[in-house]
Design a protein around this nucleic acid. Structure first.
Lengths: 113, 113
DNA sequence: CATCATTATGTTTTTAAAAACATATCGAAT
DNA sequence: ATTCGATATGTTTTTAAAAACATAATGATG
């Protein structure tokens, strides 16, 4: 036999034709929640700080309310945290993801390849 | 208002952990059906012949039966066509795609962003 | 048996994305 | 007012993917 069949998928939420939320941004927010900083979150997911910071900037620019807020300076240098608005979009993303995963898994099982 | 929300998605069928069918390969097969040659199909989708040919090679190598067969030589130089096995996997791919599109569209409409 | 458009495949070049590097700035706590 | 680790941002380098280029080989048909 040729091996087990499975389906991988990804999806992105667009607003006004622009990328708003996808797997990378969600993962980054997850890291920010975990570590309390963009720098550590980036490190954790093997991404350059520069890129992570740019992602935060971009997604905040699109959102009605910021999804990630930053604290500059201070003894600890500062940090970042995900706002309630950020957590809410994450919840919605995960909800869709879970349903989609279930759909694709069923579809995969029905496949005759 | 921030503009209309929509979701874009893509999915790939894997067999034994290897890529088997995705949007690029389906589109290429579509072009081969339309034009009767890999070269013309590639041209039509703005892809180098070399890459298209490689894609055909790769997907045929994975399939139990070839998805695309080639005719070498002849006055017309030869050509290529999609086999019944190829058409069948395309049908299945499209079927999943259609259902997924419907799901994501509904999900998009429910989003509060 | 010459032709011709296509398949087949190696080699080089271009391009775009990511990473890496380098600094400056920030500001609460000490 | 010094320190410290994080944010902020410009510049350079690396890397990987795609494209571009080049050239055989094929074989049904006239």
């Amino acid at each position: 036999m040729a091996g087990k069949t499975n389906i991988r998928f990804s999806f992105r939420i667009f607003v006004g034709g622009e990328r708003y939320m996808g797997p990378g941004r969600v993962q980054l927010m997850e890291g920010i929640i975990k570590h309390g900083s963009i720098a550590k979150a980036a490190q954790d997911m093997n991404m350059s700080y520069r890129k992570a910071w740019q992602m935060v900037k971009d997604m905040n620019a699109m959102a009605k309310k910021p999804l990630v807020e930053k604290q500059l300076g201070g003894k600890s240098g500062g940090g970042a945290f995900v706002t309630d608005a950020g957590k809410e979009i994450m919840r919605q993303y995960y909800s869709i993801q879970k349903q989609a995963a279930s759909f694709f898994e069923k579809a995969s099982d029905k496949l005759k390849v």
